[in-house]
Design a protein around this nucleic acid. Structure first.
Length: 977
RNA sequence: GCGGGAGUGGCGGAAUUGGCAGACGCGCCAGACUUAGGAUCUGGUGUCUUCGGACGUGGGGGUUCAAGUCCCCCCUCCCGCACCA
């Protein structure tokens, strides 16, 4: 990398052959280069120089309208644009070339829009709480803060070397106490709020307390507020809070030693991280009442400029179903009259309910079981057990023993057992048997269903297995043969003395029966969601402590003045982990061992008293739920963000606009986790009047991933991908032995990692940026190909050579004006590049720039000069993509200031209109000739031209002309008879 | 199984509203410079061809003067959900 060219005695250069062991096929060693050629060495020098200058001048320091980062004059008269990436976790493994793909994309876009006059906010921070730093700390004994800060420093260095124009003053980390102080503050806002269905949003809990205290709102059992004990009052309020403690079943993962959110558990009941078994346990944990926002989280998707698949995933995850709850009267074994409540989306099929099913965990099951079977029953119903109690116990034990994977592997064969009890179908009084079966899930609806075999495939299968009858209540299509018909159609067999659904279409039948049920007190219309409340506790050290304490009555939020609650120093950062399948184990947070910290004496307004702290911490999602707001005002010590600053950057742009970040770029893997949680927090803050935007991210863009090939040898071990050779027959080998190729992620363990540092060293950051942007559309995944990077390098080299004389290093720019053709070519390039950049189509923008540059190369090779207007337009267009080359050339042709804020070139519309165009002459739709014609040719003249064109005449071969289609001036199609 | 997306040269990918398929790049081939080339530069490069042309965007059918693009059927791959009543 360090060879220099030598000048010979005659003044001509001599290029010594210096071949080092490290020398590869890289074209850019500089060994052979002309003295002022664009080489890796030159790229490294000028990139460092411009990065230093940007930093020194604060080029990317974005002004706020007010406050510590405020500069009203700089803000005035410019439109704003907030461009943001999903922030990274500062991993110790360092970056590979796939990581910065999205960051480069947003940087190009941000730079482009700065040149269009926007005040662009483009920050990048760090999502730095979380498991890897903690696990590393457990292994090494080093405080996670130390490793986290070292990792952040490394990542900042790597990202700086890519020339990313972030506002470094706003580079917050979620682990900074000055950041998580406000995470805790927002938690308290949520904790101190309740969802008021009448207002359709969150309101301070003190308003609810006032309503109870004044009697405007009755307590659930009617007891006057004044007569309630302190504990009862607090319990009542706690039941309404948006952040609350719950004893409900949670996902307990012994292998990780922590509980997990539903979103963090895979379909086969394992942890998304680590792939350990997860068990349902009743544990007292913090939960966020996200379900209160389910409807708004669905409805407000409509106003978002997000990819449709992501919206769909959120809708599906929330899983809204409209239906009814219906009560089926039943008598317990003890003789008490009660009812089994089911949820159904098909109340119109009620007359077809021929049995019921309860989930194995359903709390009513045990009360229903009679002491003995009342009749002779088939063995399939009793499971061969002597009593219902024994049958259900055996069934439950068998169901518990099966893992989710095993259940899936059984191909969903329906199993179950009869309870011995019968319930009454409220519409027709029929006594129908009640079963227990694991195809009904306790976690959805009421954990109980009415089974309608004729109109539900699962019920049909179960009924077939257990010999249960079916009654069709929806007329299937004429060609229907057998099985459950789940579609819509006119109701049949659905009438009692009071109501008949017969003949009604499904929608009308639903409405009619719901009215009847409601009137009779048998049921109510209900909306059901798959979404559950969000489990918010983790038994971890490296997370935000909860800003709450406990006294004898329960939990109390701390006053703002006591924030932040900082993490205590501890000897052991590890949560207690267990054998992965030890379902009986109990979580044990590391903070519980910090006994001095966990007990604290505070004055919460009623004198100093001793309290217990919460020893769980918040999940890693907490910081990412609101970081877009902290970027706006990162140094504010009085508020998480100044309202005026928030309104400027994120406020609605028009009536009905939700506001939010103008462009948010990140991977699709956060479609339902981060993006749902962040929307929820933002809406709470909106309801409470803390932000003016009702959504955090107005526009979302999912970048694709850079994939890579990995190779395994005969033993299945990964071999270094860079040393694999492709054989002439298309197979691959490593050190002479054949290897298998697989396609997927890039990673150190797969031995196919390529780092940005490597690419910057071999070509420079501008080449890497250009290559990543030219590989394909930003939202599509594609394979990395190190060999192909040289193409982007060659372009920069050729572009450089067109502007700079390689021998002298001087500008080749001429002050003579451009000729008409050059102007037209450049104008077309400007037009296309501007459109592509605005649409994040950087790959086609680059193709157009290369095309234009190739034109200029030919022009110069033919002895032409490079006109200043042409050079400047090209430099300014290349600059967002390759900013260091852009700045360097801009300065070398005589400018002193950065080009960051120089207006992007405008195409003269007059130059976009060509004088002549190529007209395609077709015969029967096949191209036969092309002719240059005036752009304003008339249809008639083109028709004449085509009919007399020799190639058209030849292709017609004497056939009659049926018709002639003319699309002036570009196409004529002569259609033979 | 349900839902969504995608199939274009050896490879990554281009292609306003249906209107010249394969832009641009890699690779490959040839040439230039060179003691040399793995640097750089120039040119060529979908397939077949009797050199006229024919064929060609996963397969089959259709609409149209004209289909990668629109419609129907099928195949393959990727992503999400997965007994959600």
């Amino acid at each position: 990398m360090s060879q220099r060219s030598l000048a010979g005695p005659d003044g001509r250069r001599r290029y010594p052959r210096l071949v080092t062991v490290s020398q590869t096929s890289t074209p850019n060693t500089g060994a052979d280069a002309a003295p002022h050629r664009y080489t890796a060495a030159l790229a490294a020098e000028l990139e460092r120089r411009w990065q230093d200058r940007w930093e020194l001048e604060g080029t990317f320091h974005t002004p706020n309208p007010s406050g510590p980062l405020g500069d009203p004059a700089a803000v005035a008269g410019r439109p704003k644009l907030y461009v943001m990436d999903m922030f990274p976790y500062p991993s110790g493994a360092g970056l590979h070339v796939g990581h910065p793909l999205g960051y480069i994309g947003t940087d190009v876009f941000a730079r482009y829009q700065r040149m269009n006059g926007y005040n662009v906010l483009h920050p990048l921070g760090y999502d730095a709480f979380g498991l890897p730093a903690e696990q590393y700390a457990v292994q090494t004994g080093q405080h996670p803060r130390v490793t986290t800060e070292a990792n952040i420093a490394t990542m900042r260095r790597q990202l700086r070397a890519l020339g990313l124009g972030h506002d470094s003053r706003r580079s917050v980390a979620t682990t900074d106490p000055s950041f998580y102080r406000w995470t805790q503050w927002i938690f308290l806002q949520i904790f101190n709020s309740w969802y008021d269905p009448d207002a359709g949003g969150a309101r301070p809990i003190v308003e609810l307390e006032d309503a109870y205290a004044s009697g405007r709102r009755a307590t659930p059992d009617g007891t006057p507020w004044a007569d309630l004990t302190e504990g009862q009052r607090r319990g009542l309020l706690d039941d309404h809070r948006l952040a609350y403690l719950s004893d409900a079943p949670v996902n307990w993962c012994p292998g990780l030693g922590t509980v997990l959110a539903n979103e963090e558990v895979t379909a086969d009941g394992r942890s998304e991280r680590g792939n350990y078994p997860v068990f349902k346990r009743n544990l007292r944990q913090w939960v966020m009442r996200i379900t209160a926002y389910a409807d708004r989280l669905i409805a407000d998707l409509d106003g978002l400029d997000w990819p449709e698949p992501i919206k769909l995933m959120q809708r599906n995850w929330i899983g809204r179903s409209v239906g009814a709850r219906v009560d089926f009267p039943v008598r317990t074994a003890a003789g008490t009259q009660t009812a089994i409540t089911v949820f159904t989306t098909r109340p119109d099929t009620l007359f077809g309910a021929t049995y019921m099913v309860l989930a194995p965990e359903h709390p009513m099951v045990d009360d229903l079981l009679p002491g003995a079977w009342s009749e002779d029953l088939p063995a399939s119903w009793t499971g061969g057990a002597p009593t219902p109690v024994a049958a259900v116990a055996a069934y439950r034990a068998a169901a518990m023993a099966k893992s989710e994977v095993e259940r899936g592997a059984e191909g969903r064969v329906k199993t179950g057992v009869f309870t011995g009890a019968y319930a009454t179908n409220p519409v027709n009084g029929a006594l129908i048997p009640v079963f227990v079966a694991d195809y009904v899930l306790m976690g959805y609806g009421t954990g109980a269903i009415m089974a309608v075999p004729a109109e539900d495939e699962r019920d049909w299968e179960f009924a077939a297995t257990f010999g249960l009858p079916h009654v069709r209540t929806v007329a299937p299509p004429a060609d229907w043969t057998d099985g459950a018909y789940t579609g819509d159609g006119p109701s049949i067999n659905s009438a009692n003395n009071e109501i008949s659904l017969n003949g009604l279409e499904t929608a009308a039948a639903k409405a009619a029966i719901i009215d009847w049920l409601a009137a009779k007190g048998f049921g109510v219309p209900t909306v059901q969601y798959k979404l559950r409340d969000w489990l918010f506790s983790r038994q971890r050290y490296w997370g935000e402590p909860f800003p709450v304490v406990y006294d004898e009555y329960g939990v109390r939020g701390l006053p703002d003045s006591m924030l932040p609650v900082e993490l205590p120093e501890v000897d052991d950062y590890s949560p207690r982990t267990f054998e992965p399948d030890d379902a009986e184990s109990t979580p044990e947070s590391p903070l519980a061992r910090a006994t001095e910290w966990a007990t604290v004496t505070l004055d919460l307004g009623d004198g100093p008293r001793e309290y217990r702290r919460e020893t769980n911490t918040m999940p890693q999602w907490a910081g990412s739920c609101w970081y877009e707001l902290r970027y706006l005002d990162p140094t504010n010590e009085n508020a998480f963000v100044d309202p005026e600053v928030e309104r400027y950057w994120m406020g609605p742009q028009a009536p009905g606009d939700c506001g939010g970040v103008d462009l948010y770029v990140g991977g699709v893997e956060h479609a339902v986790l981060h993006l749902l949680y962040a929307r929820f927090w933002h809406k709470v803050l909106f309801d409470l009047g803390h932000v003016s935007s009702s959504e955090p991210f107005r526009r979302l863009f999912n970048q694709g991933y850079i994939q890579a090939y990995a190779y395994t040898d005969a033993r299945g071990m990964y071999v270094p991908a860079e040393d694999v050779v492709e054989e002439t027959d298309g197979s691959f080998s490593y050190e002479g032995a054949p290897v298998n190729r697989e396609y997927g992620k890039m990673g150190k363990s797969l031995k196919n990692s390529v780092t940005p540092d490597q690419m910057c060293g071999e070509y420079g950051a501008d080449t890497l940026r250009l290559y990543e942007m030219s590989m394909g559309p930003l939202d599509v995944s594609r394979p990395w190909d190190t060999r192909a990077v040289v193409g982007s390098f060659r372009f920069l080299q050729r572009f450089w050579r067109n502007v700079i004389d390689e021998e002298t290093g001087l500008s080749r720019v001429s002050e003579t004006p451009a000729d008409a053709q050059t102007r037209a070519v450049v104008a077309r390039t400007i037009d296309g590049v501007a459109r592509d950049m605005a649409n994040l189509r950087f790959n086609t923008a680059i193709a157009k720039l290369i095309e234009c540059n190739n034109y200029l190369s030919r022009l110069l090779a033919d002895g032409g000069a490079l006109p200043r207007e042409t050079a400047e337009a090209m430099i300014l267009m290349v600059a967002p993509l390759a900013p260091h080359v852009g700045e360097e050339l801009w300065s070398r042709i005589g400018h002193t200031a950065t080009l960051t804020f120089v207006p992007f070139p405008q195409a003269d519309p007059a130059l976009l209109v060509a004088d002549t165009v190529t007209c395609v002459l077709q015969v029967g739709g096949k191209v036969r000739d092309r002719v240059e014609v005036p752009a304003d040719s008339t249809e008639e003249s083109l028709r004449e031209l085509a009919l007399s064109a020799p190639k058209v005449v030849a292709a017609l071969a004497g056939r009659e002309v049926r018709t002639v289609v003319v699309r002036a001036p570009k196409l004529v199609n002569v259609v033979p008879a």
